[in-house]
Design a protein around this nucleic acid. Structure first.
Lengths: 336, 336
DNA sequence: ATGAAAGCGCTAACAT
DNA sequence: ATGTTAGCGCTTTCAT
């Protein structure tokens, strides 16, 4: 592989000069610059990243922390973030945290070994070591989901969004509303809070049996959650699923029991993932502004890294209720 | 940040000794080893990746090439591959190729700047430069999808799989079968070949108007594809979608026209992505053995990198027809 | 505007 | 079994 010294020799200049034109720093006489560029092009020279990172002491890379079994919402966010980070001239390095407990530590060590310029969380890390590390070395972090730690975030107001979703159901006339949620993450807890708050504010009883927790934000979990709900009691006319994938799984269990959506049971999801509008029935849901979240997260990091001002630490973006076909006025079964 | 020299000093040994225990190479007296480990643990020392890569001249990383808007099938494959590559002790580096034409070259340059140990393709690169580069520097590559270049692959037999899918439809009694496919990739072409072959072998006419090409393997494209098909003529009783996401979009267009699946139109997909079994109706499809593909690809690379023998260059894995609820015997409309 | 030289943190060949 | 030494390829003062 050709290196910077080869180029320097071929052109008859010093490596520093080549470095200058490659990095666009400092002055190099036009003619020399062109000669160098020509040789670089001919030889196909590409600077060695490792060497560059070492001498610069950093990597110009942003770490993206995401579960290795990321869901559709995370996938969409992921793409948006990658593009945005890229547009600011950084590379992205992915840190997949696996469900096994050990993984967070392994992930942290991996992060330490790279000299990251910043990290974006698409996943809530439990281990406080991570947050301490960031604080320690002043590594900028931002979370795109509600986080239990006090760190910069770009999110929606999960509690309020959930509340509006449930209020939509209540507005339709539902009074017995169940909820399926995956446990273990702050954003889920917020959505549960919103759910309860909507009930309370409307004078509706809070029945613990109508809230079921499942292990993950997947269709499979949604299916089991719905099944469990149905097993406990059929005394509800609407279900709020804490994510669209949960809702997708719930749909299946509902159909398995020959319950029609929305006639027998109204269903509302959360996120508005790309396929939500392709399901049958089309899923009513609460949209997260994925593009904005990704843009803002990338922009925030860029501002902090380049030490610019105007870096609010907490951005709350607007969500939006998207009414489709999976919710309707409840049909009075006793009247049937 | 603490480095290897700090550790060496604190313990009172040379950096090489520390390096030996960190990398588990060479002999170090047990007592010394323990002392070193203790200090490493206390200080939280993690080797600097850039420095390590530079002195070793390689990165112990595998590049994963994938479109930045990767679909569900690719996402699943992606996770499996990441886990497997990880289990062999390599890191994964992602190279997102964006739809814009320029991107493949940028992607290649990025790859060149890292000293990869191998590359896994989840996407068919058009630019021959990439293949030349790999051949040039003897960089091991493997594709997990059918590729137009003669390179090692771990795939299913797309042509045969498609044929079996169409044969399933024919076996059910369908004679007018349409197909939706996204253009531009070898695997799609193979599936079209299989489609035509099934028709021919069963003495069914080949009608170009029943094959529609769409831009991407997405639900959105599937929706447009189906709409187009319907616009051209309603004279078909079954549709073969070249991917499950295409099928998902097709379902929506079918419903928009009040056509029932499968009573009015049978629909078969391809891939068997995780949500295929959650759709309504549950999607009949051809399963790709995602786990095996990922495992074999990672294993192949590991074998080649460690210069082991027994590295066949082309592995064809078994697919499987998964019959669910989106296909059935055609209903004779004229008889209705 | 350009070159010389030092150094980033680590590994590995060599010496002992 | 351990230390010494020489790089790996680049950037970056510091001179000139």
């Amino acid at each position: 592989m050709v290196n910077i010294i080869d180029i320097a020799k071929q052109v008859g200049v010093s490596p520093s000069t080549v470095s200058r034109v490659v990095n666009g720093k400092g002055y190099v006489k036009l003619k020399k610059r062109e000669e160098i560029l020509k040789i670089i092009d001919e030889t196909g020279y590409i600077p060695n990243k490792a060497a560059r990172n070492m001498s610069r002491g950093r990597s110009f890379a942003i770490g993206i922390v995401i579960p290795d079994t990321f869901n559709i919402f995370q996938r969409q966010l992921f793409s948006v973030i990658e593009r945005n980070v890229d547009s600011f001239g950084y590379h992205t390095l992915f840190f997949f945290v696996k469900p096994e407990g050990v993984s967070e530590k392994a992930c942290l060590n991996h992060m330490k070994s790279e000299k990251l310029d910043g990290v974006i969380l698409l996943h809530e890390l439990k281990d406080t070591l991570f947050y301490e590390y960031c604080a320690d070395i002043k590594l900028p972090v931002i979370s795109t989901i509600c986080n239990h730690r006090h760190i910069p975030t770009v999110t929606i107001d999960d509690r309020q969004a959930a509340k509006e979703g449930v209020n939509h159901l209540i507005g339709l006339g539902h009074t017995k509303i169940a909820m399926i949620c995956a446990g273990g993450f702050s954003f889920g807890n917020r959505r549960v809070e919103g759910y309860y708050e909507a009930l309370e504010e409307n004078g509706l009883p809070r029945d613990e049996r109508r809230l079921v927790y499942v292990p993950q934000y997947t269709a499979e979990s949604g299916m089991y959650g719905m099944r469990e709900l149905l097993l406990r009691s059929r005394d509800f006319s609407a279900v709020f699923a804490a994510s669209d994938e949960l809702a997708l799984g719930a749909m299946r269990s509902l159909r398995d029991e020959d319950l029609r959506i929305p006639e027998d049971v109204s269903l509302i999801g959360f996120d508005d993932i790309d396929i939500a509008d392709y399901l049958h029935p089309r899923l009513t849901t609460i949209r997260q502004p994925i593009r904005e979240i990704g843009e803002q997260a990338a922009r925030y990091l860029h501002r902090v890294i380049t030490a610019q001002q105007g870096t609010e630490a907490e951005v709350v973006l607007p969500h939006r209720l998207i009414i489709r076909d999976s919710t309707c006025t409840p049909v009075d079964k006793t009247a049937q």
